[in-house]
């Protein structure tokens, strides 16, 4: 199986969706002729003609346009270039897209896919750096996923496009060109939902998603050398969230940590902890959330490193969960 980048995997999924279903549209700022500011949508305009087009810098019109086209039976896929820009048009997602099915009692639906990307990268400013998945996950009617590997960038996007409800796919700018992996492009389209256990372990269960998966996997390797066995679960979808997989894991390890780049307060980590605790799983240590500490995101690399949990912070805090006395 050929290794391709995360960005190429997104591109391949879009190509498959556009070729399998003539009702699929792809539009957004700079996505067509220029092929996307990150090169993710390259060549699709050439292959699929006017089903792939550039739009004005008008996020309300992009998202509203997707809602309307979806209500008429098409399958629009739209790009919001940075997740931070969704805020200028939140109405179209929250008051509009998310209500279509409910209020019409299913006579209308909005099968649209919103692709966006998020996260801080060195130098990125406070308006281009936020991790905002919890804001989307708070809205019933929207589905939300965050692929962390090239295979998932491919599979989750196709699942999203196949879903009959609005789905927000939050990709990772950091991973677009830095992460390569084998991608099976011939499998059947998966349904939405489902976490994946990336690494089995017995002392501690860690739930994470998005590019933070890779930080957590590195931290798990660090802990392994201290004799601590960490189970790493990539949630992949936070709506629908795969509570069962997490509860199964925590029932075995007795410890739960959630790690995300998003802010602590109201972050989806709180929801994960609440779900496990509500299931009555018995814990041998208080659950732990490792997150950005309720900050605006600074641009300077030195400040960003202090704001967003990195491998060493994650490893240190996980270790203190297992051996609180020795690492206090």
């Amino acid at each position: 199986m050929a290794e391709i980048t995360y960005a190429q995997a997104v591109n391949a999924a879009l190509r498959r969706a556009l070729s399998e279903d003539p009702g699929t549209l792809l539009f957004g700022e700079d996505v067509a002729l220029p092929g996307g500011v990150h090169g993710v949508t390259r060549r699709l305009r050439r292959e699929f003609g006017e089903r792939v087009f550039d739009t004005p810098i008008s996020e309300s019109a992009i998202l509203g346009g997707a809602v309307g086209a979806a209500m008429m039976g098409l399958r629009p896929i739209v790009e919001i270039m940075w997740a931070d820009f969704a805020f200028v048009a939140f109405d179209q997602l929250i008051n509009q897209a998310a209500n279509v099915r409910y209020v019409s009692r299913g006579r209308l639906t909005a099968p649209m896919t919103v692709r966006t990307q998020q996260g801080a990268t060195p130098g990125s400013c406070a308006q281009h750096s936020q991790s905002v998945e919890a804001l989307f996950a708070h809205v019933p009617g929207l589905r939300v996923c965050l692929p962390a590997t090239p295979q998932d960038a491919y599979d989750l996007l196709l699942a999203a496009i196949g879903c009959d409800d609005p789905v927000v796919v939050i990709e990772s700018r950091e991973l677009y060109h830095s992460l390569k992996g084998p991608v099976d492009q011939d499998g059947p389209r998966a349904p939405i939902g489902g976490a994946r256990v990336h690494r089995a372990g017995s002392d501690l269960s860690v739930v994470t998603w998005g590019p933070m998966l890779h930080t957590v996997l590195e931290a798990a390797r660090v802990l392994e050398s201290s004799g601590v066995s960490v189970e790493v679960i990539d949630a992949r979808w936070i709506d629908p969230f795969d509570t069962d997989t997490v509860v199964d894991s925590v029932s075995r390890t007795g410890r739960l940590a959630v790690v995300h780049a998003a802010n602590l307060t109201g972050g989806f980590g709180a929801e994960v902890v609440a779900r496990v605790v509500e299931r009555g799983v018995s814990l041998s240590a208080p659950p732990l959330r490792i997150a950005t500490e309720d900050l605006r995101i600074p641009a300077a690399p030195a400040l960003q490193r202090a704001a967003i949990p990195g491998r060493d912070t994650v490893a240190g805090r996980l270790l203190s969960m297992v051996a609180p006395a020795t690492t206090a």
């Binding site: 990125s124 400013c125 406070a126 308006q127 281009h128 600074p298 641009a299 300077a300 030195a302 400040l303």
Partner: peptide, 16 residues
């Protein structure tokens, strides 16, 4: 450059 003496002490960067 992300320095302490920047107009915004490195919080804003080039674009903000």
């Amino acid at each position: 450059l992300g320095r302490e003496t920047g107009t915004n002490g490195g919080r804003a960067g080039s674009a903000y």
